[in-house]
Amino acid sequence: MKLIHFLGDTAVMSGRVIRHSTRSIDTIITVIAMPIMVMLLFVYIFGGAMNTGDVSYINYILPGILLFCIASGVAYSSLRINNDLTKGVFERFHSMPIAKASILGGHVVASLVFNVVSLLAIFLVAFGMGFRPQADVLGWVLAIVILLLSILAFTWIAVTFGLLAKSYEGAGVFSYILLLLLFVSSAFAPTDSMPAVIRVFAEYQPMTPLIESIRSLLLGGSADKTTLAAVLWCLAILGIFCASAMRVYKRRMK
């Protein structure tokens, strides 16, 4: 009975948040149209100048674009959570006989659903632009698992910052850090063309294993150390930010 209530409440809560995304032109442009534009821009304008060896540039860049989409998508979770917190929406829910976990849970599920749809849209456009994966079933499954874990990990970062932020404007700032990390990684160009200091940083920050594992899996590579590193990074981020989000939530709801 408890579980059924929790699932039902979470479905209602996430339905609410998903409507926020689908009814906001702003969200759709930033989360779906922007990454597609960036992809077009990079592939057709800079693509010729990029040296990615024997991998075509669209094949090379797609994982970076997918993470770009996730990083900008989760910023909206953060904004909406902050808004719910400061406007007293969470308080109203707390005064009702509903499963507590469904309140943040709804935001997380909504983020997952919206990001999956956005990623599908990007995949479709990429196919049109000549993206040709060579992955077998296991490769696809692993790549999808890493993408889903990335969405969850980034979403919990967003939850934490949304709860911490003093103002609505401040709530989305963390996503610029995610985007910055993305640009200082092998997302858009191989790291060996970077200055030494940045290259070392690029090789050890989490975005690089995420991108390289997804790229390698989609292009037919098999699971290796990088795949493991990507999964471990996701789980670590998930663990840390889940725990801190819960703590901040308890504190702010006092």
Partner: peptide, 21 residues
């Protein structure tokens, strides 16, 4: 508290109806 929440309702100082819906 669980029992009470079934008995009460709260309308806060600021409007909490969802403006997108």
């Amino acid at each position: 508290p669980e029992h009470i929440r079934k008995e009460i309702s709260l309308t806060g100082q600021s409007v909490t109806a969802d403006y997108i819906l």
